[in-house]
Simulated scan of single mutants.
Amino acid sequence: MNKIDLHMHSIYSIDGEYTPKQLVKMCAQKSVKVMALTDHNSIKGVAEAKEYAEESGIHCIPAIELDCTFESATLHVLGYGINTEFEDFNQIEQDILKQEQVASIKRIELVKKLGIVFDTNEAIKLSKDGYISGEMIAEVALKHEENRNHLLMTPYYEGGDRCDNPYVNFYWDICSQGKAAYVPVEYITLKKAIETIKAAGGVSVLAHPGNNVREDKEFLERIIKEGIDGIEVYSSYHTPNQMAFYKEQVEKYSLLQTVGSDFHGKTKPAIEIDSVQCNSQGEKIYHSLMEKINSI
């Protein structure tokens, strides 16, 4: 049982394209036996995913991905085996949505100051509940031919070195923390994220650390000391060297290891469900995770 994908997003994530039912169908088509719907700060799609997964003979682990901060860095923490009736999750989701609605206006202004042309109304049409992400801005901006000659935009067009996942790469390069169009949002702390997941009966796992922690051993050690239960070793963001590095770290600190594609759909077109191989360790990853969940 190596067909396992513990990280994917539905329409209940601001940047997800498919419904939970559609994701289950895609998992079934790829013979995935274990899945987890990990929407950003939301558990709204879990019940639907579990219902259709059961019909398809797939084990769907209830989960969430919480945005949080630690030492000024923005991190993502996956929570597995959670009680989806835990009210704190809804409160976190609503708080972030309100902040993002305000941040969206500032984000648009900052991107336009860079000389990038796009139709604000078109971006609004793509928005969910007034939240306009960097990925949505990119989707609209890339339709404007005049942006092809803009130095900041050429990498995202066909043939450019960032065209594999142009929307999310635009976000990372232009709208993420430390970049020109970054607008801060006050997320919960890493400690709060871990405590919330634990209070909901779940297991906390650091998502795709190669993307923001990289191979900073000292920083990673401080994160681990906050009480994280595991690390997403096998990720679509990780190079083979990073997977080997994080495999070494989970063994060193006796942590769980997980695997996830971080599938979103059009936001990350180069990433597919079950696109990350975990070197035939799927069954071990699954049983270790379930053993930890059941022990709480």
Score class of each variant (00 low, 15 high):
Glu87Leu: 10
Asp88Val: 14
Glu221Gln: 11
Lys44Gly: 06
Asn149Met: 03
Met8Thr: 05
Glu93Lys: 02
Glu54Gly: 10
Gln177Ala: 07
Arg162Trp: 02
Glu221Asn: 13
Lys268Ile: 12
Asp164Asn: 13
Gly160Arg: 09
Lys33Glu: 15
Val34His: 10
Ile137Trp: 08
Gln281Pro: 07
His40Gln: 06
His144Gln: 09
Gln101Pro: 05
Ser56His: 14
Lys247Leu: 14
Lys266Gly: 06
Lys179Gly: 05
Tyr80Glu: 07
Ser204Thr: 11
Gly260Asn: 04
Gly260Met: 03
Glu226Trp: 02
Asp39Lys: 08
Thr38Glu: 14
Leu190Tyr: 03
Gly57Thr: 14
Gln257Lys: 15
Pro209Cys: 11
Met136Glu: 00
Val183Glu: 13
Leu126Lys: 04
Val276Gly: 02
Lys217Thr: 15
Lys98Asn: 15
Asp67Lys: 10
Cys27Met: 14
Lys128Ala: 08
Ala138Thr: 13
Glu139Ala: 14
Glu51Lys: 14
Thr196Asp: 03
Asp39Val: 12
Pro240Lys: 00
Tyr131Leu: 11
Glu291Phe: 06
Phe89His: 00
Ser236Lys: 11
Asn121Arg: 03
Asn169Glu: 13
Met35Asn: 11
Glu71Thr: 10
Val183Leu: 08
Tyr286Trp: 11
Gln249Arg: 00
Asn2Ser: 00
Ile61Phe: 04
Ile224Ala: 12
Gly81His: 00
Gly282Ala: 09
Ile82His: 02
Asp67Met: 08
Asp88Ala: 10
Asp95Ile: 07
Thr38Asn: 11
